[in-house]
Design a protein around this nucleic acid. Structure first.
Lengths: 339, 339
DNA sequence: ACTGCCGTGGAAGGCGCATTCCCGAACGAC
DNA sequence: GTCGTTCGGGAATGCGCCTTCCACGGCAGT
């Protein structure tokens, strides 16, 4: 047992094996140069004996590349993000990369801070997940540029508002398709729990839904805005129920809001789907255990995370690539055929 | 715009400001030495102009300490772990630390791998969350020793099976209390969805529950083992329902299993709580939207994450510290008073 | 006016590693 | 038997930063 705080270094290993550090390094990491078999074995034995773990910082400095990938989400406790994180984590594991997790809790300035910290770490890449506000964020754009300048890759998941490779979720088209399916089922008087007015994802889904309803010739849905969270959904739904407006179907622009809406209905004594139909968006895992089961637009969340990680591995294109990701409408008990 | 891949370095800043790197470093990071105000300003201006971000690797090497804390969980998509991760993330943020996320997916050898990777990163600390198998894991113990040897701190959340500071969850006591409350409500014929037989947490909760039931003088609960997951709960519950055993209350050793159990009941046409009562353990956030609402033992998951991070900040004690964390029984609709 | 100290800037060393460069040995070819 | 070549080990260099050590100028004290 050595002095506490004194980690085993490569030169310790080299000394133990009776070779130079150069040889030890070559034996351990491989190189263009070959090392004689007996020496290589001695080095390996010494490394195991000393329980050597190379200093990743030093390695990073020496070869100018790290194995760290940053993941920036709004809230890791939100099942939407944790599902994506799960995919990222798995793919990173397969690629031998490490994931640095950051939760912005919805504060855009935190994105910039984290990206900066990631640049300081000389992270190989950053994956930014989650919707953006409608205003452009100059500080974020600048930091993205700086990050890429420093040799890092940036990939985004959500909408094509960032000048980087992006997995673009077809929010608008998905919501339109959902609206079509719902009108086809016989619904005609719609409400929308619309999320924050300036959140692009929320707005796109809202507009897409309006479009689908409009195509069918019905009145535009009644929109109530609220936070993009369960509680936001609860409040928005409560507001809707407390109004005198007659509706037969409500669309929550994401599933966590729909969860809140379900709770609101329960508290108000509204029976789903008998008194009112409800649909969401995302198909988060939590939905498996909701009753009545919720109609939604399914997004392959875990795969999204994996794909983002794979994008990181690919060579960067000259200009931002967009990969479109479709949602699939999944009809469930919460929207039975009308009459 | 400089050459791609060439990050801005401290000497760039120093040159821009017309001072030595030593002065630039002192101006930027502060030191025992003071820098004249006008020079400090010039340095700050140069740093901002160049959008300088210090190379964390190099800093880490020079001062022998990083700002990285590792978080090792079973599955980040599991609401139990993501709630803890959320707390860790927030506390890390407050402390100016970065969180490295690793998901073992239940494979113990992955814990060792990640801890090793974290040692290579010279991580300041590692937080290991989640239940252990009953056999001792020599490889893990060795890696923990090596990690601490290298100057890192290790904190665990769960049971006191690791030779490190631990937030010990009182699984056994919580389950016993739950059983007492349940017998007081009038239940007497119990089943247990017991999780894997060799998982300490599952076993402790199971035994604790048995004890509480035994105290009341009833028959020991019928146990069915299964995975510690939703699907494990589904299968175990299905098995229980398919047997001819008459029960009036089932205890799932964690909430995700209880979620599966609810689904199994729904599929088998068993009405909760009319035909059968059900209780879980953990009080994951998902429960807010389950109907009937689920009786469970509440654990302060997010706070657990924060506390673990705070433990990291504290000076290490000579011998492993244990901090006991109690669960609180929360009675809900799924276990109404009997008759 | 000289000594000594404080305040502050700059030069240099070292953190641990990969890699380039140098050099000796062994080998094949003529 | 000599020369050219290949192979492989080791010393040295540099990555970017912090920090110790020097050096220098100004100041007070005597």
């Amino acid at each position: 047992m050595v002095q506490a705080g004194a980690a085993v270094t490569l030169s310790d290993v080299a000394r133990e094996a009776g070779v130079s550090v150069a040889t030890a390094s070559r034996a351990l990491n491989g190189s263009t140069r070959t090392v004689r078999a007996d020496l290589a074995e001695r080095v390996a034995a010494a490394a195991k004996l000393l329980d050597y773990a190379p200093n990743a910082q030093a390695q990073a400095m020496a070869k100018g590349a790290t194995t760290v990938v940053g993941l920036i989400v709004h809230d890791i406790a939100d099942p939407y993000f944790s599902a994506i994180a799960s995919g990222v984590s798995r793919a990173a594991d397969d690629a031998g990369l490490l994931v640095m997790l950051s939760a912005t809790l919805g504060r855009p300035e935190q994105e910039v801070r984290y990206l900066r910290a990631l640049r300081a770490q000389r992270g190989r890449a950053a994956i930014i997940v989650g919707s953006r506000r409608t205003e452009r964020d100059g500080a974020l754009d600048a930091e993205i540029t700086a990050f890429e300048q420093a040799g890092g890759r940036v990939v985004a998941i959500s909408q094509a508002r960032l000048p980087v490779d992006t997995l673009v979720i077809e929010n608008r088209a998905g919501a339109t398709t959902l609206a079509r399916e719902l009108t086809a089922l016989g619904y005609s008087r719609f409400g929308v729990l619309a999320g924050p007015a300036d959140l692009v994802t929320a707005r796109d889904r809202h507009r897409g839904f309006e479009q689908g309803v409009g195509e069918a010739g019905y009145e535009p849905p009644v929109a109530v805005h609220g936070d993009f969270t369960r509680d936001g959904g609860y409040r928005a739904m409560t507001e809707l129920l407390d109004s005198t407006i007659e509706l037969d179907c409500v669309f929550a622009v994401n599933d966590v809001m729909a969860m809140g809406a379900i709770a609101a209905c329960r508290d108000r004594g509204i029976r789903l789907p008998d008194d009112l139909a409800l649909a969401g968006f995302d198909d988060i895992a939590t939905l498996r255990d909701v009753s009545p089961s919720l109609t939604t637009v399914r997004l392959p969340l875990t795969e999204l995370g994996e794909q983002a990680m794979n994008l990181v591995a690919e060579a960067p294109a000259g200009s931002p690539r967009r990969r479109r990701v479709k949602g699939t409408v999944v009809l469930r008990e919460s929207t039975p055929p009308r009459r």
